[in-house]
Amino acid sequence: MNLRGLVSVTGKPGLFKLIGQNKGGFVLESLDAAKVKSVVNLSTTKMATLEDITIYGEDDEIRLMDVLETIKTNGGNTPDPKADGDTLRNFFREVAPNHDESRVYTSDIKKIISWYNIIKELPLFDEEAPEPIA
């Protein structure tokens, strides 16, 4: 799976693709149907790449990439992100069985399901992640 270049921006819904950099900051393109381009200044905005995001686990942290891959492997069926908390929690127990239930909130689960629904149509699951630069 290749999530390189996909980012979440604090305070902005959805996901973005990092497409460049200029004097003002990073140039992003939304992954929704609008394909809106915007510039984010890192001194005022926090950004996280999906490949770097982890989820609290009972023993070790769980990589978001692994959770997304498990969702796809299990058929890609997700509950509605607006479903009740019990439904979301039961789903997440299946795809991330060792997550720390006291530190992973329902809002986190909703966000992960929404992110999966955004990227599931993209060819990301079929692409290999590039090798890290040493």
Rank of each mutant, 00 (worst) to 15 (best):
R4W: 02
L6P: 02
V7Q: 08
V7P: 07
S8R: 14
S8I: 10
K12A: 09
G14E: 09
L15M: 09
F16G: 03
K17N: 09
G20E: 11
Q21D: 07
F26Y: 15
F26T: 05
L28H: 06
L28R: 09
E29M: 14
L31E: 10
A33P: 00
V36P: 00
V36M: 11
K37L: 12
K37A: 11
S38N: 08
S38I: 14
V39Q: 05
V40W: 04
S43W: 01
S43D: 13
T45E: 14
T45V: 14
T45D: 08
K46G: 02
A48C: 08
T49Y: 11
T49Q: 15
L50E: 06
I53A: 04
I53G: 01
T54W: 01
T54Q: 12
T54H: 10
I55C: 00
I55V: 13
Y56S: 15
G57F: 01
D60Q: 10
I62Q: 04
I62Y: 01
I62S: 03
D66E: 12
L68M: 13
L68H: 06
L68Y: 05
L68W: 10
E69I: 01
E69N: 05
I71K: 03
K72P: 00
K72H: 10
T73Y: 02
N74M: 10
N74E: 15
G75T: 05
G75H: 02
T78H: 02
P79K: 02
K82S: 14
A83D: 14
G85N: 11
L88G: 07
R93D: 15
R93K: 14
P97C: 05
H99S: 13
H99E: 08
R103C: 01
R103N: 13
V104K: 03
V104H: 07
V104C: 04
Y105G: 08
K110V: 11
K111Y: 12
K111A: 15
I113Q: 09
I113S: 06
S114A: 09
S114T: 15
Y116V: 08
Y116H: 07
N117G: 03
I119E: 11
E121V: 01
P123I: 07
A129R: 06
P130I: 07
P132M: 09
P132A: 07
P132Q: 10
P132R: 09
I133T: 11
